[in-house]
C-alpha cells in the first residue's frame, strides 16, 4: 500500500512538470492548447531515441525540452499568423505530431530498460553517496523502505525549481505582458506588446515543459510509446483544477504550487481507484475523465449551496424584522 502511494507521489512530481505547462497555456494565456497530447510523446520519443543511440540522458532530456518548444511555437504560429482558432490549431498540431513521433521513433515503442537514464544515473549516484541509508534511517520508525529515494527527491526538486523559475518569469516585464495577453489581449497591444509573439513564445514554453515531462516519464517507465500521450491534456487539466480547488490560486506562486499538489493528488486518487476490484488498467482514462468531471462540478455545486443558504438566511433575517416590526 505505502509503496503504491510512494510511487504515486514520485510520478506525481514528474507529471507536475507537464501540468505546469498546461497551467501556462490554459490559465495564463487563456489558450486551450491540445498540442499537449502530441508534444508529451514528442518529448518521450526524442529522449528515448537519443538515449538508445548513446546520448547522455541529461542532454537527451534537454533536447526533448527544446523540441517541445518548437512544437508549441508552431501551434502558436498556426493561431496567430494562420488565423486558425485556438482549439483547432492545437488539434492539428496534435495529429501532425502523432506521425512525427512515429517517424522519430521509427516504430511505435522504444524500450529503455537496459539503458542509462536520468533515473538510473540518479539512483546510482545516491547509492554511492549512501544517501538512501541516511534517509531510511530518519524514516525507520515508519517501517517503510522504498527501493530508492533518489528519484522521489530529485524529481521533487526538479518540479519545484521549474515552479520557482516560472513564478519568477511571470514577474518579469515579458512575463507581465504574457499574463496580460491572457487577461486582456486588446489592452496589451495598446501598450506596445506584440501579442502574436507572446502567444507563440508562451505556447512554446508550455510545450517545452510538457515534452520535458514526457522525456522524464519515458525514462521513469522504461519506454516511449506512441500512444502514451492520449488524454494527457485531460490529466494536465485534472491536476490544475484539483490543485486550484484544494490549495487555492490567489497568487501565481500559490497557483503553481497548487498545480504540483494537484498532479500528486491526481496520481494518488488514480492509484487508490485502481485498487478497487472491478476497475482495470484500461479504465484509467475513464477514471481520469470522471475525476475531472467531479473536480469541475463539485466546487460549483458547493458554491451554489452556500449561496442558497446565504439567501435563505438573509430572507429569514428580513422576515424576522418584518415580524418584529
Amino acid at each position: 500500500m505505502s509503496t503504491a502511494i510512494f510511487s504515486a507521489i514520485e510520478s506525481g512530481f514528474i507529471y507536475a512538470i507537464m501540468a505546469l505547462g498546461v497551467y501556462l497555456s490554459f490559465r495564463i494565456l487563456d489558450f486551450p492548447d491540445l498540442t499537449v497530447d502530441g508534444s508529451f510523446v514528442t518529448g518521450a520519443a526524442v529522449a528515448a531515441v537519443l538515449i538508445v543511440n548513446g546520448t547522455n540522458p541529461f542532454l537527451a532530456s534537454a533536447v526533448a525540452l527544446l523540441v517541445g518548444f518548437v512544437a508549441g511555437s508552431v501551434t502558436g504560429i498556426l493561431h496567430t499568423k494562420g488565423k486558425i482558432n485556438p482549439l483547432l490549431s492545437g488539434i492539428l498540431m496534435m495529429i501532425a505530431l502523432y506521425s512525427i513521433n512515429l517517424r522519430i521513433m521509427g516504430r511505435s515503442n522504444v524500450p529503455l530498460l537496459q539503458q542509462d537514464t536520468v533515473m538510473t544515473a540518479m539512483t546510482e549516484a545516491w547509492q554511492k553517496a549512501g544517501l538512501d541509508e541516511a534517509i531510511n534511517g530518519i524514516f525507520s520508525f515508519s517501517g517503510f523502505v522504498p527501493r530508492t529515494w533518489a528519484i522521489f527527491v530529485t524529481m521533487a526538486l526538479v518540479a519545484i525549481v521549474i515552479k520557482l523559475l516560472l513564478d519568477q518569469l511571470l514577474k518579469t516585464e515579458i512575463g507581465l505582458a504574457l499574463r496580460a495577453t491572457g487577461d486582456n489581449k486588446q489592452m496589451v497591444s495598446s501598450f506596445s506588446a506584440n501579442t502574436d509573439w507572446l502567444t507563440i513564445f508562451g505556447l512554446g514554453l508550455s510545450n517545452a515543459l510538457v515534452a520535458f515531462s514526457g522525456a522524464l516519464v519515458a525514462q521513469y517507465g522504461g519506454f516511449s510509446d506512441v500512444g502514451m500521450g492520449i488524454g494527457m491534456i485531460v490529466i494536465g487539466l485534472a491536476s490544475v483544477i484539483i490543485g486550484e480547488a484544494l490549495f487555492g490560486a490567489r497568487t501565481i506562486a500559490r497557483a503553481t504550487l497548487a498545480v504540483i499538489g494537484g498532479a500528486i493528488v491526481y496520481r494518488i486518487i488514480l492509484a487508490l481507484a485502481l485498487r478497487v476490484k472491478f476497475l482495470e488498467t484500461g479504465d484509467v482514462k475513464l477514471i481520469t475523465a470522471v475525476i475531472v468531471m467531479i473536480a469541475l462540478i463539485v466546487p460549483n455545486m458547493i458554491a451554489a449551496q452556500k449561496e442558497k443558504r446565504r439567501k435563505k438566511r438573509k430572507a429569514q433575517e428580513r422576515g424576522e424584522h418584518v415580524a418584529s416590526a
Binding site: L169, K171, T172, E173, I174, G175, L176, A177, R179, A180, V188, F191, S192, A193
Partner: peptide, 19 residues
C-alpha cells in the same frame, strides 16, 4: 503590475522584474 505593463509602452520588454 498593470502600471508596470504600461510603463514599458516605450521601452523594450526584458527579463528584468517588472515591479
Amino acid at each position: 503590475e498593470n502600471l508596470a505593463l504600461a510603463y514599458n509602452r516605450t521601452k523594450r520588454r526584458t527579463l528584468k522584474f517588472g515591479v
